[in-house]
Every structure is written in structure tokens, then in C-alpha cells.
Computed example of a mutant assay.
Amino acid sequence: MARHHEPPAGRRMSARDFRTLYERLRAAAGSAQDPHGRIGALRHLTPERVAAAAAEVRLGHTVSLAAPIQTRAGPDDPEPAEYRVTGPAAGEATAEGLHFALDRFAMNVHGDADSHLDALNHVIFDGGLYGGAPAGDAGAAGPRRLSLDAVHDGIVGRGVLLDVPRARGVPWLEPGDHVTAGDLTAAEAAQGVRVGPGDLLLVRVGHRRRRAELGAWEAASARAGLHPDALSFAAERQVAVLGSDGNNDTAPGAVADVAFPVHVLAVHAMGMHLMDYLSFEELVGACERAGRWSFLCVVAPLRLPGATGSPVNPIAVL
């Protein structure tokens, strides 16, 4: 079991400072739709930048950024995905003629174990959604402009992996540790890469490696993640999508009265889709062998009308 501890005093943020940051990022992001119909931070991912991202493919090597879906309950996954084989029926496996193997599955999309994408209708703050939409618009019955439908054509662009533990010289960040804007610039310098407009920024905290080597723990109350000031970095660089191998938010958080400040800033203030609990261990090795930390990234969520999120299996193409 991980030790629960409060963030260092220098990493805490007052409610007033958080609100100031929230209002600044919200004002800068606005809620305008670009000429191609993209809203929020996706407006930075223009068709020209998508086309340019194709130049990142040099080896033709593909890497999954998703972890295997969990079907057994654990400390970080009390409601695992339900999966069962429903066919072939008794006797069909050995009978002549055509028969089918069948299966069915269901999951809690926004849990603390499985890789998933958050839509813009996922975060309700101050009684509303991104862009001032009422909270009642969330879910399948509401308008679909903020739902998963907004990315039904997928998200394709230049992915950049910033490996913060690697830059610090450790295998992973311990639960409760925060990735600051300074950590991101330090990782850029160490890796010889720079995050730019329209990029899909992927931040490794080492959550998956720690879980694999030490076992699962109650990640809901103790996990490494981003400090709220890291969202200033994302805003300044005009990042289109943010993803992490953890929840993106640290627990315990840096803001006492806001449990998920990074989700509030990214999704609600900036209109930025988040990907939580990805897996970067294979990608790290591929990037080290290739000698670069950028690649084409393809994100294809399910087409679930009105949904607040989706399981996701992003693919990096080097």
C-alpha cells in the first residue's frame, strides 16, 4: 500500500491562486469553433498540422499506448470491466457447419485502471460544462457538441512523450508527487524535443511501471500526476490533447478544495480532451531506440453517441 501524504508546501496552491489560474486559462481558451468544426483545444490541431505529423513516420513501427483492460477487482479497480464469452453454445464447437465464438463486455469508463479518453462533457464545475454549457447537457440526452461525438472522426497528430522520471533519474514518481511546468521543460531539454502547437502531449509519471513492479494500490487516494501550473505550459504551447500513464491529477491534490484541479483546468477551462491511465513503457523503449521522442499518434475512441468518455487504444507510429 502506498503511503498517503500531503504535497510539499511549495507545491500547494491556494483556492484563490487556483481560481486566478482557472479564469486566465478559461479566458485564453474561449469556446469558439474553428472553420473545420473543432472546438476547444482541438482547434490547434489544424488539417495542416495533421498532414505535417505524417512526416513523423520513418520506421513504420507501431506501438500501443493502452494497458490491457482489467477484469479482476483490485485496490485501484473495485469495479473492473465485465467480460464473458457468450458463444459458441454447448455442442456448437464440435458440430458441423458454421458457428461463431461470441463475447460481451461492459466497463466503468472513468475508473483508475483502464486507459480511457475524457470528453468535454465529463467535467462539471460551478454548475456548468466547458464554454458555459449547462450541466444538464452532460450525458446522452444532451447536445452532442461537447460529447464523445466531437471526436468521432478520431484524433490524429504529432505525439510527444515527455518522460519526467527519466529526466529526474528515477524509475517512477512516487504517489503524491507533482509534475510541474519546470519538470516539463527540463524533460524537453533532456530529450532534445520541443512541444508545439497542435501536439498531443503525453506525460509519463511511471504509474504503470510502479504498478507492474510493486503491485496495485489504492490509486484513487495516492498517485503521481501533474501540478495545476503544468496547464500553463500546455496553454502556452497550444497543446491539443493531454495524456498520462496516471490520472493526470495527483492525489492528494495541490488544491485543498478541488479534488481534480487538472481535470477542471484542462477539460472545463481549456476544452482539452484528456487521456488517463495510458501505458508508455513499450513506447519509451521504442523512442530510445529511434533516438527521438515525437511520432504520429492516432487516437480512435468508440462511437458512443452522447458519451462522456471511451476506452481508448492510442497508437504511436514511429
Rank of each mutant, 00 (worst) to 15 (best):
A2N: 01
G10C: 04
M13F: 06
M13N: 06
A15Q: 13
R16L: 08
D17S: 14
R19P: 13
T20E: 15
Y22F: 14
E23I: 08
G30E: 15
A32V: 15
D34R: 01
A41I: 03
R43F: 06
L45Q: 09
L45V: 06
R49C: 13
A55Q: 11
E56H: 10
Q70L: 09
A73L: 03
D76I: 01
A90Y: 14
E96A: 14
E96Q: 11
E96V: 11
L102M: 06
R104S: 04
A106M: 08
N108T: 08
H110W: 04
G111R: 00
H116T: 09
I124T: 07
G127Y: 04
G132Q: 11
A140H: 13
D149H: 00
A150T: 07
D153E: 15
G154C: 03
L161A: 09
P165W: 08
R166K: 11
A167R: 10
V179F: 00
A181L: 07
G182Y: 12
A189G: 08
L200N: 07
V203H: 05
V205N: 04
V205F: 01
G206F: 00
H207L: 06
R209V: 07
R210I: 00
R210Q: 03
W217G: 00
W217P: 02
A220R: 05
H227T: 00
A234E: 03
V239L: 06
V241M: 03
D249L: 05
V262F: 02
H263D: 09
V264F: 00
A269K: 08
M272A: 04
M272Y: 09
D276A: 08
Y277L: 13
E281D: 15
A286M: 12
G291P: 01
C297R: 02
L304Q: 07
P305F: 06
P311D: 00
A316Y: 11
L318A: 13
